[in-house]
Design a protein around this nucleic acid. Structure first.
Lengths: 231, 231
DNA sequence: ATGCCAATTTGCAGTAGCGCAAAGACAGTT
DNA sequence: AACTGTCTTTGCGCTACTGCAAATTGGCAT
């Protein structure tokens, strides 16, 4: 990938909206690119946040370890998105672990440098505020769901969340083509594998989903959305 | 309240840590004070965020309404804390509604002014980043609790959370001296008023708490902590 | 094929917690 | 003191959900 191209891509990212091009250039030049093989960890939850990252190509999985010792999927970062940014800015530890799903081209900055740049270019700080508030809103949404919704609704939401990250639209629905065990779903929805099994089975009878090996087909995502909203 | 006093209090707040006193003064002077009667809404969820607030005295309840019409109590803001700050910085809509619990002295700023000040004093931007990331981590913690804990544990956590901010240590325990209805506790712990009533009654029998009018005495906070951890 | 391990399914019994209804307590108002 | 509205308590039936046990399936290595 050419340097000019990289500058163009990163300058166009949410974090640099509204910044003059010299500042964008300075920001990009403070970082560097790295090619990472698949299934490699870039950082682990609880590590001190010493770098922040931007995906040029590839995909990165963000997971969180629950007290029960299970890894739950928090987000999948596709090209043109940042990760590890907030923890770096706040000089904290990472809240999640990050692992490549496929070979990826990652651009990265030293946390200290990013903080300095942010002091020099405060518009960046406001932009990152927008980013983090959006993430915050999503998390608060999750609290709400856990506190007020029933198991079936929560499972529906969990499936829709995953499909947002990795779902592919095909002619007869949305395909989730990844290893997603009942245990994973149970962790996400705050329930247990038995309830997951029962709910999925019921949905298969109603032709809402089809369970295959290593993949789930949402035949009727709209029906699922209705279930998620409590209809 | 004297102006000097207000400047001293706000300068000492988390948001202004590390800023020179002239900048603190400029920040305070961009805002203004307002006395708000009890049970008054300062803003509503989904409204465009046009102001941010700081509690000088009193208490404010932040709640979120679900599509299904259920309320979740997100936080209780006690003196020396900000609210509505993140939504203002990100130029979004408020994520919650804010209502005074008792007569309160509120200092407030126009969202636009705060954004301008933040561009002038970038250290503020980094500070607010630290604030929001910390809130984020706490919220993530809450997700875990809601997903895995039982009602009694969740209520224990809710009470301990409140006491952390508004509790006063006295000779025979920790006093929570505020109007905290069963409804509030229910909305915090993700349950209903009946269960709250039963749990509190049980705890009173076990001499863990004493319920008085407009106040709750935690006679045995350690016992409560054990209950919260699932002992 | 065969056997092995892990994931999934299903019956079933137990329980936590929900939420209605109705009674009771309490504060504020007239 | 009587009235009013709000908050709290408590009995009770009921549902959703849990979690064990045991059966079943499916992938994978030999």
């Amino acid at each position: 990938m050419q340097k000019d191209e990289i500058i163009a891509i990163i300058s166009d990212s949410v974090l640099l909206q509204g910044l003059p091009s010299e500042e964008c250039k300075a920001f990009v030049e403070a970082g560097q690119m790295r090619c990472v093989a698949e299934n490699c960890y870039l950082f682990h939850q609880e590590d001190p946040a010493d770098a922040c990252y931007f995906v040029l190509a590839g995909k990165v999985r963000l997971t969180q370890l629950t007290p029960g010792g299970k890894q739950v999927l928090v987000d999948i970062i596709s090209p043109k998105r940042y990760f590890g940014l907030f923890a770096s800015l706040a000089s904290m530890t990472y809240l999640v672990s990050a692992e490549t799903i496929e070979e990826s081209y990652i651009y990265w900055w030293d946390a200290e440098s990013v903080r300095e740049l942010m002091l020099r270019f405060p518009q960046m700080a406001l932009n990152s505020m927008t980013l983090i508030v959006r993430r915050f809103a999503r998390l608060q949404d999750r609290v709400q769901k856990l506190a007020t919704e029933r198991v079936e609704q929560r499972v529906a939401h969990a499936l829709l969340d995953v499909s947002r990250f990795v779902g592919k639209e095909i002619e007869n629905g949305t395909m989730i083509d990844m290893a997603l065990s009942h245990r994973d779903l149970a962790e996400m929805a705050g329930t247990n594998i038995y309830s997951i099994s029962r709910v999925l089975h019921k949905w298969e009878d109603d032709d809402i989903v089809t369970i295959g090996r290593q993949r789930i087909l949402l035949c009727d995502p709209d029906h699922l959305r209705i279930l998620a909203e409590g209809g």
